[in-house]
Design a protein around this nucleic acid. Structure first.
Lengths: 206, 206
DNA sequence: ACATCGAGTAAACAACCGTTCTCCGAAGAA
DNA sequence: TTCTTCGGAGAACGGTTGTTTACTCGATGT
């Protein structure tokens, strides 16, 4: 038994990826619930029936797209969270979001659009991933001296605020385009400063 | 010339409203970009061609739906903002959102779904309305003693955080259903407390 | 070398779509 | 009353949709 992937499997993954890429491009101007199976296969240049070799339907493709977009992000976020809590941390995390949006805007648009979109399975998949992010952020916060005395519940609340804000910031970067990028960045930084200020005084006396 | 609406106009508005209602119901399980013209007229019980008497296409209907949902809300929000800034203000505003979601969940779902949805005109209409809300909240904040020394830019930033949080809370109420309502309410209240804390210390020395 | 597997093809299906054109009949204006 | 206006009905159009069935043909495992 060889561990090489084999010509066959390699070709399959190739067209599968082509389907995902084409779908992502088509989803820049519409929602997943209106994305047609034939539309995708036509863009790739394969027969409509070939679609079924990879996905049950477009909803299934959507779930795969969620995995592709958010699955690989846990590692990146994890590394960023390991960095020390200094003055420039806020700027760095916002810059990370900005770079992510610039690197793959279609992926970000897809997540923002389908997070509350019309396909239940995709909504659930995105929600699950975002919850995982919240848990990871909460775990990172728990190890910081600033979180001394915080309850686990409050930590998860705080993490949720940060995650939600990051998603919203990414969406704002998209809407603003390359022109208003600096404006969005400055706004996001000030909002994060506000939240950090709230965090610092969370345990102040009544 | 009589100022009575006339049987004719009244009937037109009636079917127009029926189209809007039917569309809103259909949009609970899909996105606007996949909503068919025939689908809507079938649900109402009129001929497909009757649709054109009221809307150019489904995107046009979507814009009308935005107006119906958010247009009447400015008055409600305005009244709530005129209330004094006491201890229970946060709970009251969250309760207002909860009641709004309970009263017309389909409208709220529509806004949350199409805010980043696949129809540009509708996205723009929602963004415009939300910007108006932000301006109104900022104007209300400007008249409060807690905002002394705040720049106009910072006030709009703060107002944006509150508006975004309200939209997000409304969406959370929807996802949670009637079962997890208390959980969402408690979470939203704590998040707002965090933000208020940041607001209170915004002008603290460096 | 040979039988099997399976990704992709081709054709056909009924169902549905948005849009146009023509017409009807009640409401409104004279 | 007579004439006009206009919301809605009806039929038909070309085009697209998802899905099924039968097929090809090169990679795969023995």
């Amino acid at each position: 038994m060889s561990h090489t992937v084999g010509i066959r499997q390699a070709q399959k993954q190739k067209t599968r990826q082509a389907l995902l890429d084409a779908a992502l491009r088509l989803l820049e101007e519409q929602s997943l619930s209106s994305l047609g199976l034939r539309e995708v296969t036509r863009a790739v240049g394969v027969a409509p029936t070939a679609f079924y070799r990879h996905f049950r339907d477009t909803a299934d493709l959507g779930v795969a797209l969620v995995e592709e977009t958010l699955g690989s992000l846990h590692l990146t976020i994890g590394q960023a969270l390991r960095e020390p809590y200094d003055e420039a941390r806020i700027e760095r995390s916002v810059a990370l979001v900005a770079e992510l949006v610039r690197a793959s805007p279609a992926h970000v648009r897809f997540i923002a659009r389908e997070r509350h979109g019309g396909v239940a399975a995709v909504r659930a998949a995105i929600g699950e991933q975002l919850d995982r992010f919240s848990e990871e952020v909460a775990a990172a916060f728990a190890g910081e001296p600033e979180s001394a005395g915080w309850s686990g519940e409050d930590l998860r609340m705080l993490a949720g605020v940060y995650v939600d804000h990051m998603v919203m910031t990414a969406s704002s970067f998209l809407e603003a385009g390359s022109g208003g990028e600096d404006k969005v960045r400055a706004l996001a930084v000030r909002q994060l400063r506000l939240i950090s200020l709230g965090r610092r005084h969370w345990l102040d006396g009544p």
